[in-house]
């Protein structure tokens, strides 16, 4: 059919163009199909089976793995922790990276470049190294943080050894590590706002705060939505720092969905259950992203 259309309706040049596009797309489509599409369908199929890596029998069990997940208190603890992490991590990253961007944007060269580099530096530092460093900073008896707080008569805090302080402690580290990346995006966003708007506002006698809330923030909305959506997606998948710093402990106080999936799949070899939890996590991310896109719909241009 396609060949018929190509032969009858297209010019020779268009035909060559189409062939070029199709041939050019084949490798990436093949790669995408084998390494992305097929694994997704395969994981869904596995999630419908009692699929233990070490079991010879892998019977079809419908949605039992999903039922197991939603009846498992550890799953709910993991989901709760993940949501806590997402809300506070994303909120703090948004606020601090925006403030950092505004601050850096207000500086003159060479301080502007210097501060941008300083704030961005944690982003390029190895997450594993940073996590190990923070384990020592947070050590209750011998850590630097409690040592410094002691000068001011504060603490000691238990940080990673406390069920209530562990997630805030990890979030604080994550925010420190991630602010630089979002700041750079906000800086890029700030450069797209026409200077005419600011000049007009100042001519009209607007205060800096009024300029911020009436011009900068509204016009940064597309950038803010981008930072928000990407931060939510990445924070739902938080794993490395948790794995290194606490392994989800104490107890399940810092256990997140991805760690739950990892342990279910690769420590207990329950691939069916791990796949089911992965699909639940996919649904969570999908819903969160759709809500954000709908809530923060960008309906203006300038």
């Amino acid at each position: 059919m396609l060949a018929k259309i190509v032969n009858t309706r297209m010019s020779q040049g268009r035909k060559h163009q189409l062939v070029f596009v199709v041939v050019g797309l084949i490798p990436i489509m093949a790669y995408f199909s084998v390494f992305s599409i097929y694994p997704v369908f395969s994981a869904f199929r596995i999630s419908l089976h009692r699929w233990g890596l070490l079991q010879r029998e892998r019977p079809f069990i419908g949605f039992d793995n999903y039922l197991w997940a939603i009846n498992d208190p550890v799953f709910w603890a993991s989901l709760r922790n993940t949501m806590f992490y997402v809300v506070f991590f994303v909120g703090l990253v948004l606020v601090f990276s925006l403030l950092a961007a505004l601050f850096v944007n207000s500086l003159r060269a060479p301080f502007k470049e210097l501060m941008r580099g300083v704030i961005f530096m944690p982003v390029v530092t190895s997450l594993v190294a940073v996590s190990l460093m923070f384990v020592w900073l947070y050590q209750p008896s011998f850590g630097v943080l409690n040592f410094i707080l002691d000068w001011f008569g504060l603490g000691p805090f238990d940080y990673l050894q406390s069920s209530t302080q562990v997630l805030p402690s990890i979030i604080a580290m994550g925010v420190w590590k991630s602010v630089g990346y979002s700041m750079v995006i906000f800086l890029a966003g700030l450069t797209t706002i026409p200077q005419d708007f600011y000049e007009a506002a100042y001519v009209d006698g607007a205060s800096p705060l009024r300029v911020l809330f009436s011009i900068t923030l509204p016009l940064l909305k597309p950038t803010t939505v981008f930072v928000l959506v990407t931060s939510v997606i990445s924070s739902v998948q938080v794993f490395t720092e948790i794995y290194i710093m606490t392994r989800g402990g104490p107890g399940t106080a810092s256990r997140t969905l991805v760690l739950h999936i990892y342990e279910t799949g690769f420590q207990f070899f329950q691939m069916g259950r791990a796949s089911a939890v992965a699909f639940i996590m996919f649904a969570v991310i999908l819903v969160l992203t759709l809500v954000q896109l709908r809530r923060f719909r960008i309906d203006f241009e300038y």
């Binding site: 238990d158 050894q161 406390s162 069920s163 989800g248 402990g249 104490p250 107890g251 399940t252 106080a253 342990e263 420590q267 207990f268």
Partner: peptide, 20 residues
């Protein structure tokens, strides 16, 4: 045993930090 070890270990962790 591997799963049992993790389950017991998690509850002991919660115990020593005073969560339960």
């Amino acid at each position: 045993w591997e799963s049992i070890d993790v389950a017991i270990g998690q509850e002991l962790e919660r115990l020593v930090v005073g969560e339960i």
